[in-house]
Simulated assay, not measured.
Amino acid sequence: MAAVMASPSPARAFDFDYRSPARVEGSPLPCGPGCSDRLEEVCAASQKRVMQWRKERSQAMNLAAQRGLQEILHEEDVLDELQADLVAVEELMEAARHFREEGSKLGEAVLQCMKAAGDRTEVIAQAKEILRGAREDYRKELDAEERRLAEMKEASRAQQLDIEDFLWRYSRCLGLEVSRVAAQTVKLNFTLLDEATPEREFSVVLCLAKEGYAASSCSPEVPELPELVERLNQDALSASAVPLFVCGLRRAFAAV
């Protein structure tokens, strides 16, 4: 990205020689003393400020890209945690249904034992009341779990919409699109790198396995990719490892 931002713009049709006509051999135009020197100083200062602005702009865009990628990875971890919570809630609901069935069976056994004791009518009434209360408690617990599951699903959906909106804005501004293609596998798709064809796509698939990160399906191929992946695995525990990898890969694509 920095290489693209800092590259000099092509020569324009109105560029001309700012030097004094007196210093240009064979020039027929006169010039007063000091005029050309002052003009050259102004032009040199302007060019210096433009180069400084380009450098600062490039650094700011790199920092924004790093922060954006870190936020994307954080949001993906949050989604994984929410999915794990949903699985745990389903297990709790299954356990609640199992406990309700066991309670029903236990109630029937109690009724049979009390019938054998003789006081059949009173015991049956008491057992029914106990079972009714237990069933009501189980129903309340099940309703609470269902409400909690619905709230978690709604929160997960809202969070997913926020992430999609962020990725859309990120893609529109910087030309980087991150999409999940499999478990712990994402595809990095770059655009806005080719000045002649801004929509041209540069992509690579990045996955995380037990042995570390691995890259595949790089289009177009860049010779720096093995070195970038090796550096990413060496600094895998660092929060800036992945953003640095993305920036390095983008520079490699831009150099193609």
Rank of each mutant, 00 (worst) to 15 (best):
V4F: 09
V4E: 07
R12Y: 02
F14K: 05
A22F: 04
E25T: 06
S27V: 05
C35A: 08
S36D: 03
R38F: 05
L39E: 03
L39S: 01
M51C: 06
Q52H: 13
N62Q: 15
A65R: 14
R67Y: 12
G68Q: 07
E76Y: 04
D85Q: 13
V87F: 03
A95N: 00
E101K: 02
L106Y: 04
Q112T: 03
K115Q: 15
K115S: 12
A116R: 07
T121C: 07
K128W: 06
E129L: 08
E129H: 08
G133A: 13
D137A: 13
A144G: 03
E146S: 13
R148W: 04
E151G: 01
A158R: 08
A158E: 02
D165V: 04
L174W: 13
G175P: 06
S179M: 10
A183Q: 13
K187D: 01
L193I: 15
D194R: 14
D194I: 14
T197L: 13
A209C: 03
K210C: 05
E211Q: 10
E211M: 10
A214L: 10
A214C: 06
A215S: 05
S216M: 07
S217Q: 14
V222L: 05
P223H: 09
P223A: 14
L237V: 10
V242W: 09
V246M: 10
A254E: 02
